[in-house]
Amino acid sequence: MQPSITFFSFVSSLLASVNQGVNEAISITEGQSNVFIAPKINLQVRCTFNYTDTLTVAPSNATVSNLYGPTGESLLNLEFKLKPKG
């Protein structure tokens, strides 16, 4: 079992998850007087990068940390900003 996925899949999956969460929150509060938007979402992910044929990444958690050790961790900073529908 290789606990890592390609960097592209990792970033695109995170983006899809954040979009999904924000869209669901917007649709649930649609028509209400109180509407909150998230103009900015920062995500800092501790992860371990591996490169063999492709660049793969494993987000840090207890399992991965025990496997690789905390010293091999990198930081991935992602900033999501709201883009108005145009």
Partner: peptide, 16 residues
């Protein structure tokens, strides 16, 4: 300290 974090800034939007 070794964990990741998510920071969400929220602001009220004007009612529709």
């Amino acid at each position: 300290e070794a964990s990741s974090y998510i920071e969400i800034k929220v602001a009220p939007a004007p009612p529709p």
